[in-house]
């Protein structure tokens, strides 16, 4: 897994904690964090890596939009590329493609990643 190769990793650590504090699902994640430090979130994936979505911690309106673009719990995402200078990520979910900012990507928790293709 190429987490360490990812420059934005440290920067977003703070935000993840922040999300957790405000989240009703706090309990679920804290058990998981205990076993594997931090849960894997989407913005940490490098391009070419893929994983399946475990939880989406955003307000319900945005969740609907994600859903309509194919991004939901259980769906399989692949990072096609990441824009320069902390710009958005380009993802493929099923047969659809979408882009989203790292801020939103950091709210999407993933199950263990599959190796890059």
């Amino acid at each position: 897994m190429s987490i360490n190769a990812n420059h934005s990793y440290l920067r977003f650590e703070f935000k993840i904690h922040h999300v957790f504090q405000n989240n009703a699902m706090h309990a679920n994640f804290s058990t998981m964090t205990a076993s594997s430090q931090l849960p894997l979130t989407l913005e940490k994936l490098a391009s070419g890596e893929s994983a399946s979505v475990m939880a989406i911690n955003v307000e319900s309106e945005l969740k609907k939009r994600f859903f309509a673009l194919g991004l939901k719990e259980g769906s399989h995402v692949r990072v096609l590329r990441r824009a320069k200078f902390g710009g958005p990520m380009h993802l493929r979910v099923g047969t659809s493609e979408l882009i989203l900012r790292l801020k939103e990507a950091s709210c999407i928790c993933l199950a263990a990643p599959l190796t890059s293709v």
């Binding site: 939009r65 673009l69 493609e97 979408l98 882009i99 989203l100 939103e104």
Partner: peptide, 9 residues
């Protein structure tokens, strides 16, 4: 606002 956008082929 969140930034999430469809990328059509």
């Amino acid at each position: 606002d969140a930034f999430v956008l469809e990328m059509p082929p």
